[in-house]
C-alpha cells in the first residue's frame, strides 16, 4: 500500500494525458485508478483536460476553425500571391 500512497501526482498527471494518446499497461491503469480514487486534485485535472479536448472536438464538429484567428491575408501579401500565380516574379 505504501507505494500507492507515495505515487506522486506528477506521475498520475502524466498517465492521465498519456492514456489519450496510447493504451496504458495494465499496471499503469490499476495504479492510476487507485490514485484517482484517492486524489481530488488529479480527478479535477483529468476532468479539466477532458473539458478542453471536448470543447475542441465540438468546435470542429460545428465546422468552426480550431481557434478564432485574426483577419485574413493583408492586402500586400494578397497582391504578392496574385502576382506569383500569374507567373510574375
Amino acid at each position: 500500500m505504501m507505494h500507492v500512497l507515495f505515487y506522486p501526482c506528477r506521475e498520475a498527471a502524466r498517465l492521465i494525458d498519456l492514456r489519450r494518446d496510447a493504451p496504458l499497461r495494465i499496471d499503469q491503469r490499476a495504479r492510476l485508478a487507485v490514485h484517482l480514487r484517492m486524489c481530488d486534485a488529479c480527478r479535477a485535472f483529468a476532468d479539466q483536460i477532458d473539458t478542453i479536448e471536448t470543447a475542441f472536438r465540438r468546435r470542429a464538429a460545428a465546422g468552426e476553425p480550431a481557434l478564432p484567428t485574426s483577419p485574413g491575408l493583408d492586402a500586400a501579401a494578397r497582391e504578392r500571391i496574385r502576382t506569383r500565380l500569374r507567373g510574375g516574379a
Partner: peptide, 13 residues
C-alpha cells in the same frame, strides 16, 4: 491543486 471548474463544459464550445 486543481479544483473542479464551475460552469457547464458543454457550453464552452
Amino acid at each position: 491543486p486543481p479544483k473542479a471548474w464551475q460552469g457547464d463544459p458543454g457550453r464552452l464550445a
